[in-house]
């Protein structure tokens, strides 16, 4: 009920009616996988440096019509994060500001549910800017692949099972090819692949095998 009300309120608060499509029903069986690379992990002080979004229609990942943009951040690009995403200050000097990228991105994702890994973080990063532009936060539904993975892997696990939801671990467990990590497009693509596989496992009621403690090899003796 809370979500429903917030949605109604947001619809009324929307500053620019050109964006009312965000509240339309989502196209059938479509979602958007999205990933942002940022200057750091603090959603208050850090900014987006690149963003990629890939539509998924049914079981097809539409890489041919993906959205990709590099952004010139307001926040200072910390040396630590440059090491991770390898986007240099000089790379973004000529790029567009998030204010001009955002309308295109919103148009691309429309009212489709957003799929991501730790999607709340990406949504928060985007919402800082969406708030300024539209006076609301993104009304799109959110799907976190780590939740889907948890559901297929650990929902029936006995208490005390060690839970591992790291991105690389999910990728390896689902047998997906490793891509160049920390590149917005490749991360969004990996996420999309996780999504279609996990969605199918769920539809077929299949659970992923857990390594039980007695499956791990005994330490060598002597």
């Amino acid at each position: 009920m809370h979500r429903f009300l917030k949605r109604r309120l947001d619809r009324m608060r929307l500053k620019d009616n050109a964006y009312s499509y965000l509240f339309d029903p989502s196209p059938e069986d479509e979602v958007v996988s999205i990933d942002c690379e940022t200057t750091g992990l603090n959603t208050k002080t850090d900014d987006i440096v690149s963003v990629a979004a890939i539509k998924i229609r049914g079981n097809r990942i539409l890489t041919s019509e993906a959205f990709q943009a590099t952004v010139k951040p307001k926040a200072h690009m910390a040396a630590d994060s440059i090491k991770i995403h390898q986007i240099l200050r000089s790379d973004v000097a000529q790029e567009r500001r998030i204010e001009t990228v955002l309308p295109d991105l919103l148009k691309f994702i429309g009212s489709r549910p957003l799929v991501g890994y730790w999607i709340d973080f990406d949504a928060k990063m985007l919402n800082k800017n969406v708030q300024q532009l539209l006076g609301i936060t993104l009304p799109n539904a959110r799907i976190d692949v780590s939740d889907l993975y948890y559901d297929r892997k650990y929902s029936k696990a006995p208490p005390g099972t060690k839970v591992d939801l790291r991105f690389a671990e999910i990728l390896a467990d689902l047998n997906l090819p490793p891509l160049k990590a920390h590149n917005a497009f490749d991360d969004a693509l990996s996420t999309a692949q996780m999504y279609v596989v996990l969605k199918d496992l769920k539809a077929r009621g299949v659970f992923l095998k857990r390594v039980r403690s007695w499956d791990t090899p005994l330490p060598p003796v002597g």
């Binding site: 097809r60 990942i61 890489t63 041919s64 090819p177 693509l189 692949q193 539809a203 077929r204």
Partner: peptide
């Protein structure tokens, strides 16, 4: 290029059918 997903037992291309794609297996 797009990417397609099929669950176990699903037919990707049926005999005698045309295919709009060349498929390259990823996994």
């Amino acid at each position: 290029i797009d990417i397609g997903y099929w669950g176990p037992g699903e037919v990707i291309v049926a005999r005698g059918e045309a295919s709009p794609f060349l498929h390259v297996v990823i996994k």
